[in-house]
Structures are given as structure tokens and as C-alpha cells.
Design a protein around this nucleic acid. Sequence first.
DNA 1: AATGAATGAGATTTCATTCAT
DNA 2: CATGAATGAAATCTCATTCAT
Lengths: 200, 200, 200, 200
Amino acid sequence: MARRAGSTGAETAEKLRNVALELFARSGYAAVSMRAIAAETGVQAGAIYNHFPTKQDLLNELLQVHMETLLAAWAEAERPELAPAEALEHFVRFHIRYHLDRSREVFISYMELRSLENENFSMIERLRRQYEQVPRAILERGAKDGSFDIIDPQISTMAIIAMLNGMTTWFRENGRLSLDEIEAIYVRLVARLVQQKKED
Amino acid sequence: MARRAGSTGAETAEKLRNVALELFARSGYAAVSMRAIAAETGVQAGAIYNHFPTKQDLLNELLQVHMETLLAAWAEAERPELAPAEALEHFVRFHIRYHLDRSREVFISYMELRSLENENFSMIERLRRQYEQVPRAILERGAKDGSFDIIDPQISTMAIIAMLNGMTTWFRENGRLSLDEIEAIYVRLVARLVQQKKED
Amino acid sequence: MARRAGSTGAETAEKLRNVALELFARSGYAAVSMRAIAAETGVQAGAIYNHFPTKQDLLNELLQVHMETLLAAWAEAERPELAPAEALEHFVRFHIRYHLDRSREVFISYMELRSLENENFSMIERLRRQYEQVPRAILERGAKDGSFDIIDPQISTMAIIAMLNGMTTWFRENGRLSLDEIEAIYVRLVARLVQQKKED
Amino acid sequence: MARRAGSTGAETAEKLRNVALELFARSGYAAVSMRAIAAETGVQAGAIYNHFPTKQDLLNELLQVHMETLLAAWAEAERPELAPAEALEHFVRFHIRYHLDRSREVFISYMELRSLENENFSMIERLRRQYEQVPRAILERGAKDGSFDIIDPQISTMAIIAMLNGMTTWFRENGRLSLDEIEAIYVRLVARLVQQKKED
DNA sequence: AATGAATGAGATTTCATTCAT
DNA sequence: CATGAATGAAATCTCATTCAT
């Protein structure tokens, strides 16, 4: 049989991306078969290859698009005019909002890095370091102008990112706290890590 | 052929555990084949089944032993007589030391939870929550007696654990900082998170 | 490689059914591997799974189709207008002809019942009992109207069926007797079992 | 560990024979593993090889012992002085009694002939034909002296044996009829097949 | 005579991928 | 662009058998 009426190639590709993202996040790249992705999408396994040359490319595209979208979103959201303290708060809020909306992308971009083959791995790693430079630069700016008292810029950066990303592990909508409340709490926790003076 | 002279069952089982741990940590449970584990251990794939009934059991045993050993190690290390501030420092040092020595166990115990089948999953989850109670109790004790100013006990607990565990991602022996230095830095970062009064 | 030009799915499935039937009859279900079926059919072992979900399903389909075809063939051949004596002769001839044409199906439908998993087993058993009702009903009709002198309807039924099926064990084309002769002999033997009056 | 107190080699061998008989009858030779036999017997798989050189030998011994015991039992039971009619009745009763006591042996001696390797197969076949000679000789004696009216000695023999053996398929202790009653019925059915004059 | 550990082959099934249609 | 059938490799696990202990 040929294409079903009402579905276009682009739609199928998008559905495949979504399903793959969901399944990779839930079970891991290696544990998800092309057939499983196909079944969930409602096509045959062979059809996937009309859209993605290999399984590896499918993962790679997901991760790369994610990282590029993230960086683009920050480029959009960035407010370089802000003082370090406000800039850090702005970043924390941006990061939490953005990452909770794409918890699956975030999850696999940390988990499945190791599933990427060499070239793909390097490219994603590079993008990730680029993003990590964002908070790091803010910390260093704040250290220089005295707004922050940073213990160690590198470790503090990693600590902040780890802390924020940890949220994707346990956050549930309709949990005890609203996203706004959680966001506010994390803003304060991060402020404490850099010993932002005005806090509390 | 039968057993090779000079090898015992316990030795083989231990070697299998070590190899599996290494490979699961490096490539993920689903991506590691029994053949690969066997090859690295120097036995035939079938021989694994003399020691572990299924691949799933092999993972499960690794995780369960890890969690139980961790809890036992803490039970040993715990010093309930310490005031909250010292108790928290003690916990941070314990956690870092213990987890860096077993970074592979820690890694897979977070990563491969999803690879566990239902019953196994529940048991490990339970043990993990039990461990998370350790810092949480210290935080609450400190909140009560005024040593700490805790923003939110639950989130602070998760934030501390996420922060500490993040280390296993980037830590390399012979890096810029020694383990002692890193430990000291984390002790201070954690102290800041709970706004421990005397710090800095 | 993909499908070879000139072969269709239905053809392959049919070839698989035939080969499996032959091999199961010759060596028994448990002793026949999917690889062996594949090799004889000229495909890879994996390709079987495009047509039958499991080995068990392959056996089950063979048995179920056999029993259903048998019942359908009888429904076609049945001549309810015949008097018991003629009806019994008609059944004996039908049974012999049908079963000799499908000696392999008959063989495995008796031998491999035990290889069927529960549900499959029950369904085949039910169909078999349905077929056994055919001679049984004739015997009872003959008992009632006095054409037959039946010793015990149930045991006589089973005895007749066992006697007839035994033939598949030793019958060889080009043996001492032609099929027509054998058929005639069995007709007379069965007549004797029910003490059909006019015989001899 | 060594031998458990209280078990001797001969006892283990006997237990193995019994268990193997049971399992072969239930699931078929090919479907029963040495480990399954061992487990049911309460020993390790390796221990079987102290008693039987191979799995094939285990089956072979069961079948050969069965056929030899059967022939010996008939040699014991045989009453050459009986007239054909009484001799046939005697044989039917002997066969039923003997075979119901060893339904598992009978079952596998028909079913697993094909699982025997060449030499073993020939030997068992020879013994089986020897036993089939028993009723055949009686039939021929009766045909000659006019006690029976045999349609075809060979087919009648096979028919009788098939009829009798069929019983092992459906016979259940505590069924509708007692063994004595069933025996009596079969005696009469067989008498009818050979058109024994005095019957009924 | 038994155990427990091993081998090497092979079981069923799944996989990523290809391609005629 | 999609299907359905195929490949060939590899997955987990089982098997008969062997042998040091």
C-alpha cells in the first residue's frame, strides 16, 4: 500500500522524531528498536529509512536539534545588560522553564551521549560546553565585580547545573509545589551558592 | 571442557560482576551483551548462567549489593552525636569519598534503574529513598535547632544530592584539583545551601 | 537483502507450512529447529517470523487448519440420508482416503498435541472430539434402529478410530495391497465390530 | 560434595530410569533435557553420566528393557496348549493388563522409535515385530483350523494391536468402566474381528 | 558416585537495514 | 513515501557433555 491519505512525509518524520524521543527517554537508545518506534508511529520499520538514514542519525538529529534550539533560545532570551545577580536569576529561570518543557530531550542529551558515535559525540559535546559557558561567564562576571563570592568557578558552575538538572528526575506537575514556587526556591538556592549578598 | 584447574566458582562470579559493572557503566545495560561480558571475563557466554540466572539478575544484584553496601557503610560511618553542621559536613565527605570509589556503581544505580523489571525496581527505589533520608534528617535537625536556615527541606535535599552526584560526571584523578580540595569545596557549597551560620 | 523478485509472501508462508509439516512429522516438533525449517524452505531463520509469530504458532496453525479442513471435508462428504450401515461404510472410506492423503497431518495431530500450549491444546482437543462424534453418532443411530449390535458405543468408537488411524503407521503405496483393497478390508472389519447383520 | 548418605548408585540409576520414563512419555525425548531429568531426580546433570553414557543410551535402555521384559512376560504367560479362540482371549487380556501397567513404556516405545539412532532403532524394531508375531500366529492358527474367519491376517493383526493400544490414550482409572469390564469388552470386540463363531 | 563449573554448539527470537513492489 | 518480505548478524538463553575436585 502507498501513503495513507492525509499524511505527508514531513508529518511522518515529525511523528517519528516525537516517538523516538519519548522511547529513547523512557528506555534508552540501545533498548529501543526501530520496529518499536515504527509500531508506535503507526508505520512499518522500513518507512523510517525514508526519513532517517540510520538509527544513529535519528538519535543524533534529536540531540543536535535539541542543543541548537537550546542555544538559540538562550541567544534569544539572553539579556547582557543585566547585572550578574539578575543575570544569574534570569538564567536559572530560563533553564528551569526550558528544561522542564523538554525533560525528555534533556534527559537523553545527558544519558545518550555515550551512544553517539565519535563525530556525533564530539559535536554534541562541543555544543554542551558552549551552553555551560553561559552560567560560567555570569559567575565570573559577578566574581570580578564583587557581586558574588565564588568558591571555585568551574565547580560552582557544574554544581549549579547538576542541581538544576536534578529537578527533571523528580519533578511532577501537580506535585506539592507549583513550578513558580520551585523556580523561586532554586533561584534562592543558586544565589546562596554564589553568596549573592542581598539574598534573604 | 569442564572447569579449568585453579579457578573457582566464586572467583568467576566476582570477575563477572566486575566486568559487568564496568561495561554497564560504560555502555549501558541494554547495549552490553552477555557475550561481551563473557569475552571480557574469559569464559563462554553460557558459563555466565552458572552464576546468574539472567542478565536482569546480574544487573539487579549489582544494584542491590551497591545500595546495601552503601547503607551499611553509612551505618558504620554515621556519627549521631555530631551537631547538624558537623553531621552535614561528615555526610558530604562520606558521600564524596564513597561515591568516587564506586563511580560506576553510582552511575548505573541512577542510569539503569529504568532497566530493572518491576519488583527489582521497587526494591532498589526503596533503598535509594532510605539513603536520601540521611541528609534530609540532618537538614531537618539543623532547621529545628537553628543551625541551618533551610529554604525547603525536600528540594534542598535533592539539590545537595544532585550536586554531589554531578561530580561523578566530570571528576578525573589528576585533574586540576585534588580530591581533598574538591571535597573541601563541596563542604563549603553545601554549607552555603543550608546557610550554615559560621561559614566563610 | 530484501525480497527476491518473483517470490510473494503467501508462497513463502505456504512453503514454510509444508516444510514444517514434513519435518514435524518426521522428527517431532521439539526436535525440529527453526533453522532447519528455514534451510529446507530456502530462507533465513529470521524470515519465518514474518509469517508466524512463534514456532508454537506454526505448529498450532498446522493442527488447527488440519482439524478444520477435516471437519469441513466431512461436512461436504456427509450423506445424512444413508442408513447406518451405509453411513458407516461411507465414513470409513472417507476417513481412510482423507487420512492417507494427509498422513503427516494426522500423525502430528495425534503426536504433537502434547507440544501445544494450554489454550491451543484445548482448541484442538475440542475439534478432535467434534470429529469423534461423527462415527459415534452413526453407531448410536444404528444401535437404535437395530442395524447394529454395539457392545459399548464409546469404546467401539475409539476402537474404530484407533484401528483406522493405525493404518498411517504401516501403509506404503506399492505395498502388497492396493488402497482400494485395504479400504474394502477395513470396511468389512468395521462392519464386524458393530456386528452389521448382512456382512459376509 | 560427594554421595548423600543412604543413596546407592543402583538406587540413583533406577530413579533416573523412572524419571526419564515419565518425562519422555509426557513431553517427548527431544523436549526433555538432561538437566530436567536430573532436577526431578534430585541430582546434578553431570551425575547422570555416571550411570548412562549418553541421553540416547538412556532412551535406548528404557525401550530395550521394555521390549525384552514384554517378550519375557509373554513367554511366561503364554499357554500354547490353548485353542485359538482361548489363546486370542488370553493374549488380549495379557496385552491389556501388561500395557496398562506400563502405559508410559508403551507410549514411548511407539512414539520415540524415531528418536533412536540407527542401530538402536533396528534392534527395537526387531523386538517389536517379534511381539507382533504373537497375535499373528494365533490368528493364523485359528484360520487354519477353522476357529476364525480372518479377512486378512496381516491387516487384522495390525488392526487388533492398534485397537488395543489406542486404549492407553483414553484410559483413566476411576473412569466409567472398570478395567475388568473394559477387558471383557475388548475380548468381545477382538472376537468379532476374527469372526469367532461361538461369540454373543 | 556426586557436585559444580565449564565448553561449544545451537536453540528461539530480535535487530538494523535493504529493496521490489 | 509506504509496505511487506527478506537478509545476516547478533541477542539471550539452553543443551549435551566433560572434568577437576
